[in-house]
């Protein structure tokens, strides 16, 4: 599923077929303009290990044209305000995952792609997935979640598909 998500994130060219994401045709230069509107959280965190959580968010803010205040607010929203000065190497997997959600809140994507959305989260943090998805869909955006926690995902999804023998099959949410 990671490969499919990376295709949807325009990071990987489809081996065959065509498709559009946010109005841009895949594997064409059109995708350049829509990439900043895509938020992608892979299973491995996109964090520099020796920077603090705050510094990682500040880096994203600087590249995305956001402010440090917004980065601090995003960290607070995911419950990491108290750990903002902690280096990533000293953080638990759950904290790293929360930091990834903070990144999504910071960049405010129109299309949110979450791989293994509930993995590595403590029960209290499960609500963060719903919070981030609601934030994106509330602005008219869309979210695609890959999750093995079907019961937890059911509350926040409109459509569900399963991969069966390499093909997608629509199932009841």
């Amino acid at each position: 599923m990671l490969g499919l998500l990376r295709v949807m994130a325009t990071l990987l060219r489809p081996a065959s077929g065509t498709g559009t994401v946010l109005g841009a045709r895949l594997a064409t230069p059109e995708v350049e303009s829509i990439r900043p509107r895509i938020g992608f959280v892979a299973h491995d965190p996109a964090l520099a290990p020796h920077l603090t959580l705050a510094e990682n968010l500040y880096l994203v803010a600087a590249l995305a044209g956001a402010t440090r205040v917004a980065a601090d607010r995003a960290l607070a929203d995911v419950g990491l305000a108290g750990a903002a000065r902690r280096r990533v190497v000293h953080c638990s997997n759950g904290m790293r995952r929360r930091a990834e959600f903070a990144r999504m809140l910071l960049i405010g994507p129109s299309l949110l792609l979450l791989d293994e959305a509930h993995v590595g989260l403590d029960p209290e943090a499960f609500r963060l997935v719903a919070h981030v998805v609601a934030e994106v869909t509330g602005r008219g955006g869309a979210a695609v979640l890959v999750s093995h926690e079907r019961e937890r995902a059911a509350a926040m999804i409109e459509r569900a598909v399963e991969v069966r023998d390499g093909t997608l099959a629509e199932v009841a949410p």
Partner: peptide
């Protein structure tokens, strides 16, 4: 090597 696939993907999506 310090820039793993996830970080490369993130930078690409940020328009870097």
């Amino acid at each position: 090597a310090s820039l793993g696939e996830s970080r490369r993907d993130m930078l690409t999506l940020l328009g870097v």
